[in-house]
Each structure stands twice: as C-alpha cells, then as structure tokens.
Design a protein around this nucleic acid. Structure first.
Length: 284
DNA sequence: AACAAGACCTGCATGC
DNA sequence: TGCATGCAGGTCTTGT
C-alpha cells in the first residue's frame, strides 16, 4: 500500500504517542509476516523507551534506549493504528504494542507482505533490507547531477528505474506515474535516453509530487489509513493514476484526440500516462 | 550483469 | 448464489 508519503504520514501520527513512551507489553498474535520475527523480539522490546521514531525509505524505525531499533515495513496492506485499549483484537491484527502512557498500537496487515525486525542500532546500515537503499528523494543528495549519473548506465524504462529503491527510495507505483506525468516524460523511455533538461524536470516533479502528497496525508485507496484511522486525501489529486480513459487532470491535451489517460503494464504493474503530454517512448 | 517472471498473501470487484 | 479470474500503495528470489 504505502509509498513514501503514506509511511511518512503514519510516522508523524505515531510520533506523539510513541516517542518517549515505554513499551510495556508486546503481543505477538503470530510469529511471522513475510519472514519470521526474531525469536526474542518481544523480550528485546519489553520495557524499552522509544527514544526516536523516524522514517527511512518506506521503513519506520523506532530507536530504543537499549541501542536496538525496531524496523517496520507495511508491505502493501499494512497499517499502524492507535486504538483505544477496549478494542477487541480483529482479524489480521498481528502485533499489538501497549505503552506506559496507556496507548495501544496495532499492526494490522491482511496480506502480510510487511516485515518487522529488531537489530542493534549500530548495525542498521548493514541490515539486509536497508543497506542497498538509495538517497531520500526529498534530500539534497537527490539532485540533478546524481540522477544524471545514476541513469546513464540504465537500459530499463524510466518508470522502472525510479521505482528502484537503489536509485531513489520511496517512489512506488502511484507516484512514479504521477511524477512522470508532471515531468512530461513517457514512462517507457529508456532511462539512459533522458536529456539533462528532462532529468531536471523529473527530479523537481518527484520532489513536488511527494511533498504535496505528504501535505494531504497520503493517498487512501483500499487499505491505507493514517495512524489515527483518518484517510489521506491525495487520491483526489491524481492526474493520471487509476484514471484510464478519463481526462488527465490539469492537462492541456484534448481528450477527444487522446481518448483519455492510457494504461500499460510495466514490470507487471499498471502504468498510467497521457499520450499527448508524455511523448518520446520510441526515441532511443 | 540485467531484466522479467514468479512468489509471497488476502480481499474485493467483475463476469459468467 | 456460487465460482473463477484478475487485480491491488512492495520487494525478495528465481530463472533466462
């Protein structure tokens, strides 16, 4: 489900409740998600204060006073919910955290594509899931010279490239389509073929789309909600995503001429684009 | 080495 | 109504 704006929104929602709180009880209602939890996970977390909560890529990191970090990934359908402690456990509530300030945080994930792990904070950067991550898209490290160099050897389509977490983190299937639309770049263009001018537009578009989505609390389609259960609102601002046959939002193209937003499949995932504004797929 | 395809899961919408 | 099919905000593993 969640791309960078959704994970960032969840993280911001959890921070006031979790930062400074002590985890008094960790209830594991199963022993694994995609992968097994560490054997001693509950013991490593119990009675630990959460020093700091942050987001890295699409991961939520809770740094603990015992120099360990809880790593959480929401997969496609994961939620972190702040619930009243009168709530009865529901289907797909896999892990429940109870804090010393009386909060109950529920990790619910129907598809179980999420993950949870606890590692020594000092070893975070070498963690299997984190060590290959590229720069944060909203950081200064993600700039035009970096992307020019990073795309040069890449023969894959530009949409596949910007969803590669090694090139840049946080861009998933929705925001890849949205950013390419905003930049006016055809999603099937070979990555290495983009001009510096096009890359400049793309970098700005990625930063802009993600920032605007964070402001709106992310995009709620099927599963995603914020930590307080509230919805995100950015789905109302999609220009092309999931709008096949409809008019692209904020576009100067003529729907009579284009037939509306086009849908194609890349890497097994749906891509949406405007055939008028986003040209050049045939160009080398 | 690079890329596509398959695998991991459940739930929902659609069509027969 | 039931059943089969296809699709969904991700990413790791396997096969070409």
């Amino acid at each position: 489900m969640p791309e960078l704006p959704e994970v960032e929104t969840v993280c911001r929602g959890l921070r006031p409740v979790l930062e400074g709180a002590v985890l008094k009880d960790i209830i594991l209602r199963r022993q694994n998600l995609r992968t097994a939890f560490p054997k001693n996970m509950a013991a490593l977390l119990k009675n630990q204060q959460v020093i700091k909560l942050e987001r890295r890529a699409k991961y939520i990191l809770a740094h603990l006073e015992n120099a360990h970090t809880l790593i959480i990934h929401l997969g496609m359908s994961g939620r972190m919910l702040i619930m009243p402690d009168t709530r009865k456990p529901q289907k797909h509530d896999h892990v429940i955290f109870e804090t010393d300030n009386g909060a109950r945080i529920v990790f619910n994930d129907p598809r179980r594509f999420g993950m949870m792990d606890v590692v020594e904070t000092a070893a975070l950067v070498t963690h299997k899931n984190l060590r290959h991550l590229g720069p944060e898209p909203l950081s200064k490290r993600f700039d035009v010279p970096y992307v020019v160099a990073a795309l040069k050897p890449r023969k894959s389509a530009i949409k596949i490239a910007i969803m590669d977490q090694e090139l840049v983190v946080g861009v998933g299937n929705i925001y890849a389509s949205e950013a390419l639309f905003e930049a006016g770049i055809h999603p099937a263009r070979p990555a290495y073929s983009l001009s510096k001018n096009a890359i400049t537009k793309l970098v700005a578009a990625i930063k802009n789309v993600l920032s605007r989505a964070i402001e709106k609390g992310g995009s709620s389609l099927r599963d995603y909600v914020q930590a307080d259960g509230g919805l995100g609102y950015f789905q109302h601002e999609f220009a092309v995503y999931d709008r096949a046959g409809e008019a692209c939002k904020g576009c100067t193209c003529s729907i009579k001429k284009t037939g509306g937003v086009k849908r194609m499949v890349q890497g097994g995932r749906a891509t949406f684009y405007c055939s008028e504004k986003q040209r050049g797929s045939r160009k080398v």
